[in-house]
């Protein structure tokens, strides 16, 4: 078991290492010299133009780009481990780490809640649809949910915004908290934040509910056809117990894998929702940074993305043996 833990953790570290290396390599493999481009942009804007070569050398030295590649690489790794991601170009000299960390709670709060909610409700709905004696009414009601999952979440977001934010303005349509509010640890603040999360959250939940439900329904139907369900019936177990403890329980295993993947992709999962609702999460900040060509912020957020995927996979690897003994056996 300890060996398994170490192997999994080692794997996560390796994934992070590869992700960091790619992150280091890509800007350096891109065609064109960023320093000269930057200087060209400055001079084109009518900035001061002295000796171009001298200015370029100075800038390279300041950015550490004049050192050998290996040294740059090691420095990059060391900085990354300390979460020193450099400084923002657009809002100089704010550290990138600060920008990323400021956005993180918003994204985790909004997308984490929305993802977990749609997982729970969707799986529940899917399981009920697979119940052999599910009422016809339920199947009828589930239809719109399934259809909704074919609509992209950002379209849903715009429609919801138009309906509940503008046509019948009951909910705020932009930002993460009431404009001009001084955040306190009190009920009013919490309510304000929650209200701002409703529309973006709802558009994500509505758009993914159907996917969870359809996947779960398929899994439960598959499990109910297994030989061990037949034997459970032959043992005289009640229909309810067979359905819950044998059917749903076993069908949830692959759903958990999906959930972990979804949580890993949380940061990048719904960038457009954050953009549409001007929600101050990571996705929105990434969008802004791309617009401002703020390379270091983009790089920092991409790194966070790899980190969260690696963490989610590690978490799944650690939890899965507890819920599926077959995995525990293979890993022992």
């Amino acid at each position: 078991m300890v060996g398994y833990l170490l192997r999994r953790i080692g794997m996560a570290v390796l994934v992070m290492f590869v992700a960091l290396s790619v992150n280091f390599a890509i800007p350096r493999l891109m065609p064109g010299d960023p320093v000269e481009q930057q200087l060209a942009a400055v001079s084109a804007a009518g900035g001061q133009t002295g000796d171009m070569a001298e200015a370029a050398a100075a800038m390279r030295a300041r950015l550490g780009l004049d050192r050998p590649l290996a040294v740059q690489y090691l420095a990059f790794l060391a900085n990354s481990i300390r979460f020193d991601l450099g400084v923002s170009v657009a809002s100089y000299p704010q550290p990138v780490a600060e920008i990323v960390l400021a956005g993180l709670p918003w994204t985790i709060g909004l997308l984490g809640t929305a993802t977990l909610l749609s997982f729970v409700v969707g799986s529940l709905l899917g399981a009920m649809l697979a119940w052999p004696r599910a009422p016809k009414l339920l199947k009828f009601l589930a239809l719109p949910v399934v259809v909704l999952s074919a609509v992209p979440y950002f379209i849903l977001g715009i429609v919801l915004m138009a309906l509940l934010g503008i046509l019948w303005p009951v909910l705020p349509v932009a930002g993460g908290y009431p404009f001009g509010m001084v955040p306190n640890a009190d009920f009013a603040t919490a309510l304000g934040i929650a209200k701002h999360g409703v529309l973006p959250g709802l558009s994500i939940v509505l758009a993914s509910l159907g996917t969870w439900a359809v996947a779960m329904r398929g899994m439960v139907v598959g499990v109910l056809g297994e030989d061990y369900i037949m034997l459970a019936e032959a043992k005289g177990l009640s229909e309810r117990r067979i359905f819950l403890a044998y059917g749903v329980r076993n069908a949830l295993l692959p759903q958990f894998t999906q959930l972990a993947l979804k949580l890993g992709l949380l940061v990048s999962g719904a960038i457009l929702v954050e953009v549409i609702f001007a929600y101050p999460g990571i996705g929105y900040r990434l969008y802004v940074a791309i617009g401002q060509k703020d390379v270091f912020v983009v790089q920092g957020i991409v790194m966070l993305l790899s980190l969260s995927i690696a963490l989610a996979m590690l978490l799944l690897d650690l939890i899965y043996p507890l819920i599926d003994p077959r995995v525990a056996a293979r890993s022992a």
Binding site: D227, Y228, M230, L231, A232, A234, P325, R326
Partner: peptide, 16 residues
């Protein structure tokens, strides 16, 4: 009582 055909999958894999 039943002894099923194909005991390979007749037992629930997640229960002892």
């Amino acid at each position: 009582a039943l002894v099923p055909q194909g005991a390979m999958n007749a037992l629930n894999p997640v229960l002892t």
